[in-house]
Design a binder for these strands. Structure first.
Lengths: 193, 193
DNA sequence: ATCAAATTAGACCAAATGGTTTAGTTTTGA
DNA sequence: TCAAAACTAAACCATTTGGTCTAATTTGAT
């Protein structure tokens, strides 16, 4: 039957709350309350807030990685359109979310990257895994002569996703998708073969 | 003679501390200690922590704006090279800073943009002023046929600076300028006429 | 059935948080 | 010169922070 609470549920709540509010702005008590678990259980599963954050990043990173994999595998479009649709999808998700949260990885990296080596390391690792998947599609696009060959596939993948992260700043302060749409339009003009 | 403390000194300290550590991670007491002022003086100048943050953003935004103006005015290079040198300079500053802090505006926008309307508004405003200055140079570059005409000057300016912000994530978690250099190389290939 | 391990529960803790208050000191301008 | 305004100083406050502790309960393996 298992016990009453389990790690994944706490991680899911933590992921949502931290993504929306940031790391330092969120206290453990808040997560506890929203997850409906007592403190004893939390510290049974996690050593500290920092340890919890690492596992949240892992949880989100891995979940997202398999989601990505699925999306790319199932796509029936050409490589460059697969990528474009993917970013369109992400923009849509952020719109549904009222342009509030952005990406946990980007948020955590920017807020805590220089403060805690442990979080920086985990953040970077998960991001790199995503990049590998994106780079695969970029490479296919290059082979299909859809995407420029002037730069390496991994370089372009990084350019894409980091560039996308750059749009979160304005998304959050303007609460609008306008800049994300412009970014999409321009970037995919630029990387075209 | 004036009083012992003045707003600007506190703002300068606050700017440094918040840029490096974020908004929620920094307590007023820490700023007080580093600025060497008692709490009474602080709350004489500022209504609240939030009010203080707004003024820090303003202070930094305006200071940076005139700095930018000077740089662009004094530049003897062609428009596109003026811009490239400018971003090279920024990358250098971040290197000197051990890739720690990034940009206050980007940090604050990402950390607090959706949490406090007041901070979002001020952040967006200062960013927009910068963008106007960058767009001026972009326009000159377009007129000189150095920069692509496929997109508007303001669009390109936004693309440049937001893209640059996107590189901060990896800068912080990798503590390296590698990705920023790659971004520079690629972006200026892309926007070329 | 029993027992050790895992989990639950929440009271408790010291330290830090943003902020208020009160009292005193300087400065300014009429 | 002198009163009002601006500023300094720090003790104080309720609340919240991350984290500990102890005791009870539940679980799975034997």
């Amino acid at each position: 039957m298992g016990y009453k609470h389990n790690k994944e549920d706490i991680l899911e709540v933590g992921y949502q709350v931290i993504r929306k509010n940031g790391y330092h702005h969120v206290g453990i008590n808040q997560i506890l309350k929203e997850a409906g678990i007592p403190k004893g259980s939390f510290y049974n599963f996690f050593e500290s807030k920092e340890d919890f954050a690492i596992q949240v990043i892992q949880y989100y990173g891995e979940g997202n990685r398999s989601w990505l994999k699925g999306i790319f595998q199932e796509s029936t479009e050409t490589p460059i359109n697969t990528l474009k649709s993917f970013y369109k999808l992400l923009i849509g998700y952020n719109e549904d979310d009222n342009f509030c949260s952005g990406c946990l990885i980007n948020n955590m990296g920017n807020e805590t990257g220089r403060l805690y080596d442990s979080l920086a390391k985990e953040t970077k690792e998960q991001f790199d895994h995503w990049l590998d998947l994106i780079a695969e599609i970029v490479k296919k696009g290059q082979e299909a002569k859809e995407i420029t060959n002037r730069f390496g596939a991994k370089e372009i993948a990084n350019y894409l996703h980091s560039g996308f992260y750059g749009t979160f700043f304005k998304m959050k302060v303007e609460r609008s998708r306008k800049d994300m749409d412009t970014w999409l339009k321009m970037t995919f003009e630029f990387i075209r073969a």
